[in-house]
Design a protein around this nucleic acid. Structure first.
Lengths: 335, 335
DNA sequence: CGGAGATGTGCAAACGTTTGTGCTTTTGAT
DNA sequence: ATCAAAAGCACAAACGTTTGCACATCTCCG
């Protein structure tokens, strides 16, 4: 039998309302009464029933979190786990909880969003993919997006400056004497890669170099064995790219294997710079020079923003940008 | 303004109780009335308030999930993301939700557990580490452990048969002619590695081979640069191990690099078999022969078990064991 | 000494559901 | 036609809190 506020009230010889106020540090309760009550509550191991509390206060201290696509899959990127850690730490510190948006197997992200918002538990939503924002907005809850939503002006989001990062990565190679650099892993479906591509092009233009269509290679060239030939042929030509910026460490690693297989050396013949600075990238031979996008901080900021938002719904639309850093390792050679 | 059951009742010209029963398919409501009410509720976009519902029904459809140590860190293992996926899929299918146990930065796992159970939201707990079980039990909630808890007899858990897996891995090498095989990554702190070691020894004994203390190398030999020397020296001796079973793909990859660095080839000079069958292991050169422990299924079973448990608390203690599979690839040579 | 203002506490309503009980109407058997 | 049982529904209490309001006591000033 759970003990209630009434039990505490009885034990303390006061009314439930007094107990409630004392526990909330309401100034209308005298100092000593408050201490007294708190002590008794402690001894009785009283834990207020959240359901009842939330029912009347209309606050749950719960933030819904929805992951893109198949949760586990995206998690493997090692990007989301860090985000999750960031989210968790500030949630924990502010005594908030995270409710995971899950769907049954094969459910779309929109379904996960609905399951979450229909549940009625969450006060706000954090959506880890700009793609799901439309679904999220119909929920009638405050939403913070991780990543640049389509109409950024009237939304809340935290993101890396992906175009700046794409530009920086490209420039990093150009500054080291590379005249032809390719871009690997472009996928128009995802804003992230689209933005990085934009930065890539800007860097090229600023250096007065042409941006050849053939040099930006779509993600499927890596995943799809029938298309792999096209990728290989790119590096078989005498005027092959001497540098590649890859959208992710995993892609860089795969490319690395392919190049070695072709008899080319990294960074001897071709230099690689990639994104996400993963453990796997650090373990690669050679260790990858990679752009650290600080997913942990991304998570922290997102949680801070959503908490501010549920407390003050009138907060004006806010977009936060997290700085990135180039982790210099051994996959780039200066020509 | 949220719409309530009363609004629906008014619109349908019946009492709230009738609406409630109709929505719950209570047989005391006539077929046509039920349809009628459901249609109206649909049109009005009525979503019952979970707080109120949970308050009286004393069910929240929320399962607390707590991860070991620093969430993000453990996630990188790529093991937990898959577990999470499994958990999520069955939770979603049964219309349950997962509440994440988070603590502030630096909080222990026990604190995370308490934060979760004190919240009063969760009906049951899934603990992804046998280590946290004691803390979890004081919570007064049903608990399912992922991994073998210390006193397995009176607990609920799902786990791999780690000793069998350790035995199988070792035997796999022995059957291929290896006479001296080492065990890498032993850490007495963790039951998993302890169990696998047990299996390793059994396999050795059954083959009539000695189990040398020097051949089971602790995890820190890999992580700690000062101890790495000891690891190297093991492979510098003429009677070096020709096979190694590693506790995790990541360790195998690191070892692989070290061996190559020493001028030894994998699997030419030394064969490697490891656990967890990760993407990184598949990408390694050579692709790792690894034991797949099916974390996805682990997650599924755990969620199924906890849901059964919260519905029928009198369920007798249950221990589930998930089968494993050896994924044969190219890191083992037959002598 | 009377009353105004503080100060501390209790009462009861409200939050939005679920559910036991009892009331009315219909049905079918006699 | 009469009555019992069944069917369909409404009433109201309950779940455990929070909070506006009223009430009681105490202090202090004129």
């Amino acid at each position: 039998m759970k003990i209630t506020i009434k039990d505490v009230a009885k034990a303390a010889g006061v009314s439930p309302s007094t107990v409630s106020r004392a526990l909330h540090d309401n100034p209308r309760i005298s100092e000593e009464m408050r201490k007294q009550i708190k002590k008794i509550a402690q001894e009785m191991q009283f834990h207020p029933n959240q359901m009842a509390r939330s029912l009347v206060s209309r606050r749950s201290r719960i933030i819904g979190v929805v992951f893109p696509g198949e949760v586990g899959e995206s998690m493997n990127h090692s990007f989301y786990p860090s985000v999750l850690q960031g989210l968790g730490h500030v949630a924990g510190a502010r005594r908030y909880h995270m409710l995971l948006g899950t769907g049954a197997e094969g459910d779309s992200i929109a379904e996960a969003v609905h399951q979450l918002s229909d549940s009625g538990y969450a006060e706000g939503l954090i959506v880890l993919a700009a793609e799901a924002v439309p679904a999220a907005h119909t929920a009638g809850l405050p939403v913070v997006t991780l990543g640049h939503p389509a109409n950024a002006e009237n939304g809340y989001y935290v993101d890396n400056d992906n175009v700046a990062a794409g530009q920086a990565a490209t420039r990093y190679l150009l500054e080291r004497g590379h005249k032809r650099v390719a871009l690997l892993g472009y996928d128009p479906q995802f804003m992230v890669t689209a933005d990085r591509r934009k930065g890539y092009q800007q860097a090229l233009e600023q250096a007065g170099l042409p941006c050849r269509e053939a040099d930006v290679v779509p993600i499927r060239y890596l995943e799809n064995t029938t298309d792999e030939g096209k990728l290989r042929s790119l590096f078989e030509r005498p005027d092959r790219p001497t540098g590649v910026v890859c959208m992710d460490d995993a892609q860089a690693i795969a490319l690395c294997h392919m190049l070695v297989d072709m008899g080319l050396s990294v960074p001897g013949d071709v230099s690689l710079i990639s994104f996400n600075d993963t453990p796997a990238g650090r373990l690669n031979n050679p260790p990858l020079t990679s752009i650290n996008v600080d997913p942990y901080q991304l998570g922290q900021k997102a949680m801070e923003l959503i908490i501010r938002l549920v407390k003050h719904p009138e907060t004006p639309p806010t977009g936060l940008t997290i700085p990135f850093a180039i982790m210099e390792r051994d996959s780039v050679r200066t020509l």
